Simulated assay, not measured.
Amino acid sequence: MAEPNTRERILEATAELYRRQGMPATGLKQISAAANAPFGSIYHHFPGGKESISVEVIRFEGIRYGEFVGAQLAETDPLDGIPQLFENAGTLLESQDYAEACSIETIALEVASTNERLRLEAAGVFESWLGSLASWFGQLDLDDEQCRRLALVTLTSLEGAFVLSRTLRSTEPLLAAGLGVRAAVRAAVDAG
């Protein structure tokens, strides 16, 4: 596999720093050092500075996480497999010493009221993920509205559980959220 080019290294380093410490705490010099890239290369590849890097990180991470979760969904039954998905997320979070979770969530929390451009980029990623989840729930023979609702329940449960799990340094919130989502799915199937 080829080594990532300078632009990719900057994006990967920025995404990791954002996941670990958030966007406001991450400076351009820190990004440059973490990417092992000359400082001037940041403005060469991202003329708009930190906001431009952040837009690209949101897009980059949105695709990366979407593909990662999509692969897991493809192997999981939408009725009974949900707790395992949440357990897997907890195992991964625990293996990273609760230091990393969803960088999109982190950025969205930090900019939702202060930077419309970044808020819209994060919203676009979340909508993409919701669409994928809704399609996945479509296997259950539910209507579009029910699938969208279950996608919202799943994503909000997952993202909220990440916050609590990181804060409590425990996978308990993720495990409980997985059981809660499964109950919501079962209720929708039984009602429909």
Rank of each mutant, 00 (worst) to 15 (best):
G40S: 13
G62R: 01
L79Y: 10
I53Y: 01
N115L: 01
G27F: 00
V57I: 06
R20I: 02
A112M: 13
E105S: 10
I107E: 05
R64M: 02
R64I: 03
P78R: 01
L28T: 10
T91A: 12
E56D: 14
L120F: 10
I107Y: 06
F68H: 15
F60S: 01
F46W: 10
R117G: 01
G22N: 09
V69R: 04
A108G: 06
S41Y: 11
G90I: 11
V57T: 10
A122R: 10
S54Y: 07
V55P: 02
I82F: 03
S113K: 15
A122E: 02
E100D: 10
E67A: 06
Q30G: 11
G40H: 09
R59F: 00
F60G: 01
V55T: 12
I58F: 08
A112D: 13
M23K: 14
L85R: 12
V69G: 05
L93Q: 11
I63T: 14
E87Q: 13
T91M: 11
E116N: 09
Y43M: 02
G49H: 07
T114H: 14
Q96T: 01
I42H: 02
V111C: 03
A108M: 08
F68P: 03
V55M: 06
A35H: 06
G22R: 09
S113H: 14
K50S: 00
Y98I: 03
L85W: 12
A74S: 13
S103I: 00
A37V: 13
G48S: 00
A37C: 10
Q84H: 15
F39Y: 15
G49V: 04
T76G: 07
V57W: 01
E61Q: 15
Y65M: 07
E67T: 08
F86Q: 02
R64W: 08
E56I: 02
L92S: 14
N36F: 09
T76H: 09
P78W: 00
E67Y: 10
K50F: 03
I31P: 14
A33I: 15
A74D: 11
P38I: 04
H44I: 11
G49I: 05
D97P: 06
P47E: 00
S113L: 12
Y98P: 09
V55E: 07
P47D: 00
E51W: 03
E121F: 07
A101C: 11
F86C: 01
V55R: 15
V111K: 03
L85F: 09
P83K: 10
N115E: 02
S41H: 12
G40E: 04
G22A: 04
L73A: 04
R20Q: 08
Y98E: 01
E94Y: 11
N88T: 09
P83W: 07
F46K: 00
P83E: 05
Q30Y: 02
L109T: 09
I58A: 11
E121H: 13
A89Q: 12
Q72H: 12
D97M: 09
P83L: 03
L73P: 08
L28D: 05
L109M: 08
D77A: 02
S41V: 03
Y98M: 01
L118T: 14
V57M: 00
Q21R: 15
L73H: 08
Y65F: 08
Q84L: 14
K29S: 14
